[in-house]
């Protein structure tokens, strides 16, 4: 048997020699067998509002038991969690928290959801998969916040147990993904289409970075692609950039840029367009039919909810999402 291993989890597809660790830092070839280095060893565990993920159309005002291990499949220069995403698992402080204990802790803390988040959950695929299977048996929902850089086969297998996904669509050019993230755009678009096909509730986050991906024409083109391939009901969150990691030379995103992005998205036909990382009326949900205020938010707090049985209280229109 060959001792070389080809990892087929993400599009990078690392070819690993004996005792070589993958680019994600989370998988190792030992004697021709690939092992996870992070199974049951989260470096981050927290209880968050589901709105923080951000999910705005998925069980609003509930809490999510959130876990992450070290490692990532990309190397974004603007990463807000680079201390753990760009770290080796042996360099982070890890807990011993097996899958059944994750579910038990979530239930003890009245969390409706377990969210795989903070770093890139693809790198702890086996841990997430086993946890999600147990959670499904106990009627705890599973959600993922991902960069979408995962191959189709593992994604379809995971989708059997995933209730919702928030995918970072970081830009709409191959150049950005190549230069800024060390990846490719095409696999991320494929992931979005696959998740939609598999019936996983989908929301999209786009971090708007001054000078790098804030061109209104490209944003509109991206939104038109979303409408055509995923539908007009997919909520999109334009998130405000703040200088982090290797991009501290850039300023925070101007408010006007975010408002322009929102206008471009609505012009393209998207019905639910939000602005994140910034307080404004654009963090509220309005009915696409009668334009009445449905969910009022201040940051992560829901202050008003006018959705009943998945419908607008005012006009009765069905509101896309998972409401209870």
């Amino acid at each position: 048997m060959s001792k070389k291993v080809l990892c087929e989890l993400c599009p990078t597809e690392c070819l690993l020699e004996d005792y070589q660790v993958g680019g994600c830092r989370a998988r190792i070839n030992k004697g021709g067998v690939l092992y996870s280095l992070v199974y049951g060893k989260p470096c981050s565990v927290a209880i968050d509002p589901i709105e923080k993920k951000p999910f705005y159309h998925f069980l609003p005002a509930t809490t999510a038991f959130s876990i992450a291990t070290a490692g990532c499949v990309l190397g974004c220069k603007f990463c807000q969690n680079w201390q753990i995403s760009q770290a080796k698992p042996e360099d982070t402080d890890n807990l011993d928290l097996p899958p059944d204990e994750v579910v038990r802790q979530a239930m003890l803390n009245n969390c409706k959801t377990i969210t795989y988040t903070y770093t890139e959950p693809t790198v702890f695929y086996e841990y997430m998969y086993d946890t999600a299977k147990i959670a499904r048996n106990f009627n705890v929902k599973n959600t993922i916040h991902t960069c979408g850089y995962i191959n189709e086969k593992p994604l379809r297998e995971l989708s059997k147990y995933m209730d919702a996904a928030d995918v970072d669509l970081k830009a709409f050019t191959e150049d950005f993904y190549n230069r800024i993230c060390g990846g490719r755009l095409k696999p991320v678009l494929d992931t979005l289409v696959t998740l939609r096909q598999e019936g996983v509730w989908l929301e999209i986050t786009n971090l708007v970075i001054p000078t790098l991906n804030d061109d209104a024409k490209t944003i509109k083109k991206m939104c038109m692609w979303i409408v055509k391939n995923l539908g007009a009901d997919v909520p999109i969150h334009f998130s405000r950039f703040f200088p982090y990691y290797k991009l501290t030379n850039l300023p925070p995103t101007p408010v006007e840029t975010l408002r322009d992005a929102r206008s471009a998205a609505m012009d393209a036909g998207l019905r639910y367009v939000y602005i994140g990382n910034m307080r404004s009326e654009a963090e509220n949900t309005y009915c696409h039919h009668c334009k009445q205020l449905l969910i009022a938010r201040i940051g992560y707090a829901v202050t008003q909810n006018n959705i009943s049985g998945g419908r607008c209280k005012f006009c009765g229109a069905a509101i896309p999402g998972v409401w209870g």
Binding site: K3, L6, V33, L34, Y35, S36, Y125, Y127
Partner: peptide, 14 residues
Amino acid sequence: EPKKAMFWRNTDEA
């Protein structure tokens, strides 16, 4: 105990 990973294969490719 180390956890065996999913989605990989042995290869002789260079």
